[in-house]
Design a protein around this nucleic acid. Structure first.
Length: 386
DNA sequence: CGCACCGGGTTCTGCCATCTGC
DNA sequence: GCAGATGGCAGAACCCGGTGCG
């Protein structure tokens, strides 16, 4: 059985290459009027219905079932794959298992990204090798592929992958950066080189337009601060930059400074989300008697406030305010918003128990690691006993 | 010593739409 | 017309500790 699958795999890659060669030079018009299928499949003769609903490959289905693949899911995701005559599911399984993937992992991968079984062994080996240039171990790669099969299998263009690695390196990203990038946002490496290049050029343009000194290093700095940037559209990033500018009335240099700092992390949020967060924040500030300039002050001081969803932000603010903290204090120490509502609630309770005076002592206690907070609480309790 | 400032680490896929080439 | 390749989108925080200063 395995041998048969191997032959199938061989035939698959051989045949498709042969077909490409064969039809590659055909004039476009001829190709569009005469379906290639009619030219090459001998068994399908005249009495076939015009468009026979292509049926699924029974032996493939059987194989997939044996492998534990969720065929229903696979059908829903990429129905065409199940109709293919030649596939490489056995080869793929053997390959991945050879890299340390369990059969469950393989099944999960094929269920979620069926097209994986159309890749030839040579292709898989080459691609794996390229990933191994960045990863230390096969196990790391297996875990990424398991997490995101699509990132590994969506493109069949190994050459493009190679070029991407070279391109990203040329930006000044070192191996450690690439490792983080491929771990965190593996899709980046399946982007076309052109798409990645567009984003990089876009970022360079932004920097230059804002009067930045060296636009060439700007993309690197943004990418290393926001590993997701390359899997976003330039349109999205551009719109967000415009939103920032509009809400805060920023000058070019202020904006540039922000973009080079922590704002890089929020620049890829969905446009509506960012806008919504801005609006909510603004409303809350206004309703507490803050001035327009306070919004700017807050965002400049703590840009990540925009990362917090409007519901979460509201509940955090409510929690702090009802705990006896003034909005002005939050504006001064916005990092308290960094902590979860649950964490804040818990700390407020503890502090109330020792009658902590926020007016007198400020709210910095809330903005500290658990360890430091606990140490602080120890002292406060000891002070109460005296 | 206690505190404030600051930066860093972790983190992200699975689906749909559109085009392209055979 | 089909499947493959590729682009794009929504979803949405939390925590830790080094260091330098008073």
């Amino acid at each position: 059985m395995a041998a048969v699958a191997g032959v199938k795999a061989f035939l698959s890659s051989y045949r498709s290459a042969a077909l490409q060669r064969r039809f590659g030079h055909m004039p476009a018009q001829l190709t569009s009027t005469v379906p290639p299928r009619g030219l090459c499949s001998a068994p399908m003769k005249a009495n076939e219905p015009k468009t026979p609903a292509p049926t699924e490959n029974e032996s493939l289905l059987e194989n997939l079932n044996l492998m534990g693949v969720d065929v229903k899911m696979a059908r829903q995701r990429q129905p065409g794959v199940l109709r293919k005559a030649f596939t490489n599911e056995r080869g793929l399984a053997k390959f991945l298992q050879g890299k340390g993937a369990s059969s469950t992992v393989v099944a999960g991968i094929v269920s979620r990204y069926p097209r994986a079984i159309t890749r030839s062994i040579e292709h898989l080996e080459h691609r794996w090798e390229l990933w191994r240039d960045i990863f230390e171990t096969d196990a790391e790669i297996v875990s990424i592929v398991d997490r995101s099969p699509e990132s590994f299998f969506r493109s069949s263009d190994n050459d493009n992958l190679k070029k991407n690695i070279a391109f990203l390196t040329s930006l000044g990203l070192n191996n450690k950066d690439l490792h983080r990038l491929l771990t965190t946002a593996p899709r980046t490496f399946s982007n076309s080189l052109e798409l990645n290049r567009q984003m990089v050029e876009f970022l360079e343009d932004v920097c230059a337009e804002l009067g930045g000194e060296n636009p060439e290093q700007f993309p690197k700095s943004v990418i290393s601060k926001n590993l997701y940037i390359l899997i976003r559209s330039t349109k999205r990033v551009k719109t967000n930059i415009d939103i920032l500018r509009a809400f805060l009335k920023l000058s070019d240099s202020e904006l540039l400074g922000l973009l080079q700092g922590p704002v890089a992390q929020i620049i890829d949020l969905s446009n509506e989300y960012l806008k919504n967060n801005f609006k909510t924040l603004q409303q809350r500030l206004v309703s507490h008697g803050c001035r327009k300039s306070d919004l700017k002050k807050l965002v400049l001081r703590y840009p990540m406030v925009l990362y917090i969803g409007s519901d979460t932000l509201s509940s955090k603010l409510d929690c702090l305010l009802s705990g006896g903290i003034a909005m002005q204090q939050i504006l001064e120490k916005p990092k308290v918003l960094d902590y979860s509502t649950q964490n804040i609630t818990g700390r407020l309770e503890e502090l109330h128990r020792v009658r902590y005076d926020f007016k007198k002592n400020g709210i910095s206690v809330l903005d500290s690691s658990q360890k430091r907070f606990d140490a602080k609480m120890e002292k406060l309790r000891a002070g109460l006993d005296d």
